[in-house]
Design a protein around this nucleic acid. Structure first.
Lengths: 331, 331
DNA sequence: CTGAAAGCGCTAACAG
DNA sequence: CTGTTAGCGCTTTCAG
């Protein structure tokens, strides 16, 4: 029953045709005469033949396998974000019978491009050199969750600036003036954009951004907790906190709980992500939803297009959506 | 800069040696003369050469790529479980510079075994035929999270029976007699084992298992909610609920919250998983922790061993650990 | 529409 | 220790 060695040759023999015909059966069945088609079909079935992907690739074909590279930086790989990306891409590719070759970039660039037809980068954090190398090899690439205008590259990003701007204005429209921002690591593009959106909204509405209201958390709940302690011990504590992620916002909810600070009466909170894994009791978090699913499906789609026909870099920026729930009140 | 076409031939030419020598440089550098080694090294660097994984494989080498097949059944792929498996395997393989080829089994068996050196199955649910086919092809296999004693297969499983038994006895030792069980889908082996453990603990302690206390939830919080309503409307509602997963247990906590049923005073609850994504406000769930990380690392390790040298099926069963927190009280 | 034949890039005997 | 050579399984001209 060991069919591991079934090759195109045996199929050809069994079907009484040449191996070229068997090959055509897979690549262009319409070009076969009805009779031969049937014969090959039968032989393939009986031998349980599956063409070897690598031999195929070696001979110039496709592997039907996309790479997905996720930065290991700051445990991004262990975050909700990474999870959604993996799911989204896998789900999008499934329809096309394309497999996902998952790779985490820790610090050495060990990715083997010979195992894939194209690559999706989930953000670029600390692996710019890798990106360059792979690009130089001529491998089709799509970058996700990050604008890449400086390069000749396709990307699908999210308008973090706008999302952040809207969220902050939402707070301002509720009468808040003392608005803090728990920012992410500013080496990460989206964190920077979110900070910018926040600042811009403040500026536009004539509120000066106080440095003591801006805290870097690196997206980590634990660090967020420290910054929060800080914020609440200010002589003029903020009445609203705009957080770089739901995980951070969730930590804020917990800290407020502990301190008996009533939400949204005393403090308003907005998150970013719309992460379903962050439900805090009965309080539903007001947050900025990222269209992660759309981003991944679009990314997968673009990569396929690029591979199919040579195209100029495709650039897509997706809008976020403010999801209004329970954690913002009027001041 | 397009190095996509750099082959072993060009490296050989540049280094002034034969392609065989270049090949040896990668497979067994120690066999080269110092001088040639240096020459090849230099050429490889300058040309930025990376051997083609598929050509290598075709010629009898390894791909250094493991497949991971996750059943799509009942959205398992979208669960905490799947996430942990992916992370665990990817992390374990990273050290060995082995890549992960991720594949979700939805309903068609489309997995291409020619893209991997070996396969890890994350449970077998609805894809027994696929397992059989791949096994027949002679591909090295490890099954994770499922005993496979009926087959000649390696596996790393978890002792669900024992974990469940201990949890139920823990409840009994707290004086509970009316203990309900929210079970998972019984087509899933671990769900069945958990139910068995529960029944056995009851039996051992002279408590008869009431059918109305055993509810199937399919691991779904939404279904759990319905069953819970059911349970609480019984003339003799349970004083303790042992749940098949933390997600289900979490739903139980929420429902109790809504119904103002005090935990653990009025009802005790135990989950299964120790899923960090299920924190319910300040109440910490008492639960059975599964050693998922150990399971994945062990699985990856075994697969490597099997590939290295032909071994008889390796069978490992890991213990769970009861994590005592806030949700179980005396009756 | 079909078959023969020339590789794709690499490994692994086999000679030297 | 190193080079030569015969494939690995498949695709793709090129004739027929």
């Amino acid at each position: 029953m060991d069919s591991s060695k079934v090759t195109i040759k045996e199929v050809a023999k069994k079907a009484g045709v040449s191996i070229a015909t068997v090959s055509r059966y897979f690549s262009n069945p319409a070009s076969l005469r009805e009779k031969n088609l049937k014969k090959v079909e039968k032989a393939v079935k009986e031998l349980n033949f599956q063409p070897s992907a690598y031999a195929r690739r070696l001979a110039g074909g496709k592997l039907n396998s996309f790479g997905l590279i996720i930065p290991g930086y700051e445990n991004i790989f262990y975050s909700y974000y990474a999870l959604e990306i993996i799911r989204g891409i896998a789900t999008a590719l499934e329809k096309e019978e394309i497999d996902l070759h998952l790779h985490v970039f820790w610090n050495k660039d060990t990715f083997k491009t010979s195992l894939i037809d194209g690559i999706i980068f989930a953000d670029i954090i600390g692996n710019k050199d890798q990106l360059k190398r792979i690009k130089d090899e001529g491998v089709p690439i799509v970058v996700i969750n990050r604008r890449m205008d400086e390069e000749e590259l396709s990307y699908v990003a999210i308008d973090n600036f706008k999302g952040s701007f809207e969220a902050t204005e939402f707070l301002i429209n509720h009468g808040h003036k003392r608005i803090a921002h728990l920012a992410g690591n500013l080496e990460v593009q989206c964190a920077l954009e979110r900070l910018d959106g926040y600042k811009r909204a403040l500026a536009k509405n004539g509120i000066s951004a106080k440095p003591e209201y801006i805290k870097i958390t690196n997206f980590s709940p634990r660090e967020a907790r420290e910054r929060l302690e800080n914020l609440f011990s200010l002589s003029e504590p903020p009445t609203a906190i705009f957080c770089c992620s739901d995980e951070v916002a969730n930590e804020a909810l917990i800290v407020c709980d502990e301190k008996q600070i009533k939400i949204p009466d005393k403090v308003s909170i907005i998150g970013f992500d719309d992460n379903p894994y962050c439900p805090h009791g009965n309080l539903m978090l007001t947050t900025v939803r990222q269209p992660l699913e759309k981003m991944t499906s679009k990314g997968a789609e673009i990569l396929q297009m690029i591979i199919e026909k040579e195209l100029p870099p495709q650039r897509v920026v997706l809008d976020t959506e403010l999801v209004i729930r329970d954690t913002v009140g009027f001041v």
